[in-house]
Design a protein around this nucleic acid. Structure first.
Lengths: 208, 208
DNA sequence: TATTTTTTTGACCAAATGGACAACTATTTA
DNA sequence: TAAATAGTTGTCCATTTGGTCAAAAAAATA
């Protein structure tokens, strides 16, 4: 008995899968896994529900794939912190990069946050796996910089947490941030945020 | 035609409503509004579904009440920042208080985060209302302290955001935080976090 | 204790939703 | 262009779930 397995994706498969992923990201990030329905995703990408299920075998599979591709992108910038550059500059570059991502990848940030918030059922192994590896690696580097007195002493794990939380806050809690600022400040949130963050981390990390 | 309106709650009503609220907080914070079901809440408090609906007319009403009572508690500590105390001490006291809440009120923090993350459909008016009032008030105080050179100059709005994000991170993203720390560090997350935060804000805000 | 009021629950309903599938159409390939 | 393969959809189904309701049980009151 021969089972025929399709290896190569057709043009239409590539296009439609991408279309579905985009719509799914939008819907999942707004409503969460449970709040999102196939009908909503279908509407968002202009396909019918059975058509979507022709490309993905279930809603959960769509969610898993969207989350998966997001995670890789999410971890990447951390890896770019280089031990060759000037320590403070490297850290500030990372802060800037993360803040930019909060501005341009708001949906991704919210989806990631929702996943973690609800116990990371599909993400746990990645957190404890490749992300942990990268973090541990950078923690070592930060400790090296501290021992060389190139940055002020500080717990490197919590330093990383602080960068994540402060930058992602502008994506995840955008509704709150917008609500609390007046119109003038609202239009320059991200400039103000960058100024604040760079000042903040510089004051905290600069060696006298 | 006379309509009889019950004014005073009976003992049983008080007890059962509280019981339901507790269970609902637990379930809502774990699954979100849509992911939570009446059956789950019912199971969590040992009542039957129709019994719950005897005390609350709908799932949404339970959610609204749980959220409402949480919000007041959530805003309160900010109000306690006093213009009479030493500026840096007052700010650090607030940081400590918020971090403690992340430890002891994890469910509340997660529920609040989920609500904001998904657009704050029921909270918008409170954000723009009483919370904004309090924030604006404290921003004025912070600006006063800055102009008197009692703390280093910094955007007060973003300072408040940074306190919120960094402290709440330890509740909302606990799964991630735990995943990334080894056993030794895991057992003293909150001590390490407090040390880190106090050092950080001190370095950032202290006037030379 | 008799009566009234409050509380509880089993059984039920309608809407929403994830998904199956056969029939039909469009595209690719030989 | 004919055959084969890929893509699309209307219709249907089963499950989940928020919510109703009448009747029974428990509690409060007179």
């Amino acid at each position: 008995m021969t089972k025929i397995v399709q290896i190569k994706q057709t043009r239409i498969q590539r296009e439609k899968r991408l279309l579905i992923q985009k719509a799914a990201l939008q819907v999942f990030s707004e409503f969460g896994l449970r709040g999102a329905t196939l009908d909503k995703i279908a509407k968002a990408c202009g396909l019918t529900k059975p058509n979507i299920l022709y490309y993905y075998s279930s809603k959960d599979e769509i969610y898993a794939e969207v989350l998966q591709s997001l995670l890789e992108e999410w971890i990447r910038p951390l890896k770019d912190i280089s031990e060759n550059g000037d320590p403070l500059t490297e850290i500030l570059k990372y802060v800037k990069k993360k803040l930019t991502m909060s501005k341009t990848k708001k949906q991704e940030s919210k989806l990631f946050a929702t996943e973690i918030l609800h116990g990371a059922p599909l993400t746990q192994n990645i957190l404890a796996g490749s992300l942990k590896e990268t973090v541990d690696d950078k923690v070592k580097l930060l400790n090296k910089w501290i021992s060389e007195e190139k940055i002020a002493p500080v717990d490197p794990y919590h330093l990383i947490f602080s960068i994540w939380s402060m930058t992602q806050h502008y994506a995840d809690f955008d509704v709150q941030v917008y609500s609390l600022l007046n119109t003038k400040k609202r239009s320059r949130i991200f400039q103000d945020a960058e100024d604040f963050l760079l000042t903040f981390f510089t004051r905290c990390l600069k060696q006298d």
